[in-house]
Design a protein around this nucleic acid. Structure first.
Lengths: 177, 177
DNA sequence: AGACCATACCTCGATGCCGAGGTATAACAA
DNA sequence: TTGTTATACCTCGGCATCGAGGTATGGTCT
């Protein structure tokens, strides 16, 4: 997820680590702020994989910066990941949102974008709950516990909103394709 | 989060590992199914901490089971964690939902439950977005990218639903206290 | 009888993440 | 001048997690 986000932000324009950190904090910070000890090793891994290059530049405000720039391989890796997300990217809320944040980078390919959205649609249409009575998912109305009822109500509202948006956006994408 | 969930499920009744696994799969499985290699070491850690005890029983259907039972220390640790969740438990969606799933275990203490909900309320009332124009959060209406607009619309729907539920539930809890 | 599956538990290496710490520069305030 | 803050990067130990593998039992199907 971190890898995807780094590649996604750098696709827009080169950034140095500190800027990247702020972008990441906005995108995923409300969930869990990424720490320096996570970010910088991740950058190094991406560099070792040849997906980005670092160029040292005199620091504008302070210490020298390492400006990060995607390579062609990096750009290709990003687009690949966007075209063919793995199951967890589709099912996990945080990963899915990260993917959504950069799906526009597939801009020449409305059919590919639509295919990704359709995978999410399929996932959301699978019956799922937090609690089961045997194999049967338990709905909000049956739950006496107000806290668990809240979970189900909130999850339902989220799913409804997402389905609305998915259907509307798919219609647009299909019209464009 | 895993620790909280294990303690939470065992507070209801003793379970063996395999049952626990199925409960956890329902609760967090849509996000990320926990693997055996995560669950069993986690159980052992909790046992080492003295929060649960294991009793070997002949297996009903197959191999012998290790029935897991909370100790008094385990029960106390769970209630403590529920009363005083750390910041991440409040801000991170997954952790918050895990906490909600077991908040009813604080049943004699409506004031404590309300205090926890109020912390979430405070968190949700902080202005936050995925994207910023300088320091100003960018709203859904300003975003041209349909995918990022979707993120913001879905997040807003979720927040609205959660706020409605929070206010209603707080009113009930305050009446009970 | 043999094959197969669901139940039930466990280990181990690899990996990624966290937090705490460190280094350094430049601007500004006390 | 000294301290503080913001910028900017890095390392390292420790730990939780994952995935792939293994062991074993009992029931069902053929």
């Amino acid at each position: 997820m971190l890898k995807l986000a780094i590649l996604g932000f750098l696709h827009d324009r080169p950034l140095h680590g500190y800027e990247l950190r702020r972008h990441l904090a906005a995108l995923t910070g409300h969930v869990r702020p990424i720490s320096d000890g996570t970010l910088y090793p991740a950058i190094k891994r991406l560099e070792a994989e040849g997906l980005l290059v670092r160029a040292t530049e005199p620091g504008a405000a302070a210490a020298p910066r390492h400006t990060l720039r995607l390579t062609d391989a990096g750009r290709a890796a990003l687009l690949d990941r966007l075209r063919s997300p793995d199951e967890l990217d589709v099912s996990n809320e945080n990963r899915w949102f990260t993917l959504l944040a950069f799906l526009r980078h597939l801009d020449g390919e409305p059919a590919a974008q639509a295919a990704v959205l359709r995978r999410r649609l399929a996932f959301l249409n699978e019956p799922a709950s937090f609690f089961y009575d045997g194999d049967r998912p338990v709905g909000a109305e049956e739950v006496a516990d107000p806290f668990r009822r809240g979970m189900l109500l909130i999850a339902r509202a989220t799913t409804t909103a997402e389905l609305d948006w998915l259907h509307a956006t798919l219609a647009e994408l299909d019209a464009a394709a």
